[in-house]
């Protein structure tokens, strides 16, 4: 029974590896910058990739009747025109960090199927900075407490190791 169970386990494992491998091919997407997309242009036709950059000012056009959103994703050197067939996502605005997922159109542009918009979270960063500046004392206290726990854990493990093995 046990060996047959092992066999079942191995079969499941093999099936999983096979599935993961086959679906990996064609599903793997490279993370590209606008300059990389611009330089690869034709080679990206029909290939899936992720494009990360900033939505260019003045490039956003939303055609509500067709349900089509067009905008450029830019970095310091290049701009990539993106076509997204879907509703205008909330939080979407020029100047925002965006990750677009989709396929290349072969002419240096992209047809996106999913947009990931980084929430405007400047206040979060700001508060984190004041926090780190102000809490130096607390970090000290916390560090001491943490070290005490670590020492305790080590002592515990060493203690276990020295003891004779108990019966089961």
């Amino acid at each position: 029974m046990r060996s047959r169970l092992m066999l079942a386990g191995v079969l499941v494992l093999a099936a999983v590896v096979y599935l993961a491998y086959t679906s990996w091919q064609g599903a793997a997407m490279y993370y590209l910058t606008p300059s990389e997309v611009a330089s690869q242009g034709e080679a990206l036709r029909g290939r899936s990739f992720r494009l990360a950059g900033v939505v260019a000012e003045g490039s956003v056009v939303f055609d509500a009747a067709e349900g089509e959103l067009r905008f450029d994703v830019v970095d310091d050197t290049s701009a990539v025109p993106v076509l997204y067939a879907g509703s205008l996502p909330d939080n979407f605005a020029a100047g925002q960090q965006v990750v677009a997922e989709g396929t290349g159109d072969g002419t240096g542009g992209m047809v996106a199927t999913r947009l990931i918009i980084k929430c405007p979270s400047k206040y979060e960063e700001g508060s984190a900075q004041t926090a780190s500046g102000r809490n130096t004392l607390l970090i000290g206290v916390a560090g001491v407490a943490g070290s005490a726990v670590l020492v305790g854990c080590v002592a515990l493990l060493v203690g276990r190791g020295r003891r004779p093995r108990g019966r089961v």
Binding site: V16, L19, A20, T22, S23, W24, G26, A27, A28, M29, Y30, Y31, S48, R50, E101, R114
Partner: peptide, 14 residues
């Protein structure tokens, strides 16, 4: 050093 990711199609097939 290059980031590769997978999206829904990967999970749908595996």
């Amino acid at each position: 050093g290059r980031e590769v990711s997978v999206a829904a199609p990967f999970y749908l097939r595996s």
